[in-house]
């Protein structure tokens, strides 16, 4: 199952990834990051198809896409 990891130290909460995800499995976190943002996070890993669109759009290179 693909998995999305967001580096909360890099993410600036532009949510380009959230908007581009075809399965809508990313969403803003409810926890504030050290930088003062609500970083993106994966909310439904089971829906993720590993298409990497979130990675492709992320301007902060904060996303790692993994597959178990």
């Amino acid at each position: 199952m693909p998995k999305i990891e967001v580096d909360t130290n890099r993410c600036k909460a532009c949510y380009l990834c959230v908007n581009v995800c075809p399965k809508k499995c990313l969403a803003p976190s409810k926890t504030i990051s050290k930088k003062g943002y609500f970083p993106a996070q994966q909310i439904r890993p089971e829906d993720c198809i590993g298409c990497k669109m979130c990675y492709v759009m992320c301007p902060d290179v904060a996303i790692t896409v993994l597959k178990d």
Partner: peptide, 15 residues
């Protein structure tokens, strides 16, 4: 786990 995509090694770690 296999990495499908991650920050390239040619970028530094600086945000």
């Amino acid at each position: 786990s296999t990495i499908l995509a991650k920050k390239p090694s040619t970028l530094t770690d600086l945000p």
